[in-house]
Amino acid sequence: MRVEMLTFLLSAIICLGGALGVVLLRNTVHNALSLIATLFGIAVLFMSLGAYFLAAVQVIVYAGAIVVLFLFVIMLLGVDKVDHIEREVFKGERFAAVAVGVAILGLSVTALLSVGASATGQASANRALDPTAPDINGLAQAIFTDHVFAFEITSVLLTIAVVGAIVLAKRGGAVIDLEEFPDGPAVIDEPEPEPEMEQSGAELDATADDDATVEASDDSTEAEVGS
């Protein structure tokens, strides 16, 4: 019991730390590495839940393939990307984002805790886990009998994804024609210091008029749309 608890707590800390790293760190490479930490933590949790095959796949596919792919792209495009998280599409957007997050967390935890110490639900009727056999047997039976169509369709999906990736990556292939969209992107602006919020109203308006604050660019966007 104690060992399980310890395992859970350790991997939970790793998971949360990795997740916070993904969100908070500025360097994209560090983000990717934090993501690996989370994925490994979840793989450990899978194991403690008896899903050994999935734990293996988690490490191989996610950590081994997906994150490596992320890193490839980061290296390809350069790591010096500066993320202006302080810029908002509309005022109070970041606050709204955090509020939504808190609400999701609070509500789901409320829902979980209000039913008592353990999850409830209808127990399995026809595909129970078999503790005597390896978990991979039950999983294989489920996938190749009950979910065989879904399985086949995922293979098609993978094929399409590969073809799509090749088409997208082909140099000189389909690119977005900016002449077709002369308006350009909605928010066109140089990185600049955020206007000081302590400014008086008149000054704020003046800044908003000639500088590309978020509001001003929003207005100009609307004007373009109107024309």
Binding site: V89, E93, V100, G101, L107, S114, V115, A186
Partner: peptide
């Protein structure tokens, strides 16, 4: 707006509303 974050925020608000629905139904 074409800006993905705004859409995602819409998703989030929708999710919150769904959760509110579930929680109030549960109580």
């Amino acid at each position: 707006s074409g800006i993905i974050r705004t859409y995602a925020l819409g998703f989030g608000v929708g999710a919150v509303l769904l959760l509110v629905f579930v929680v109030t139904r549960m109580s």
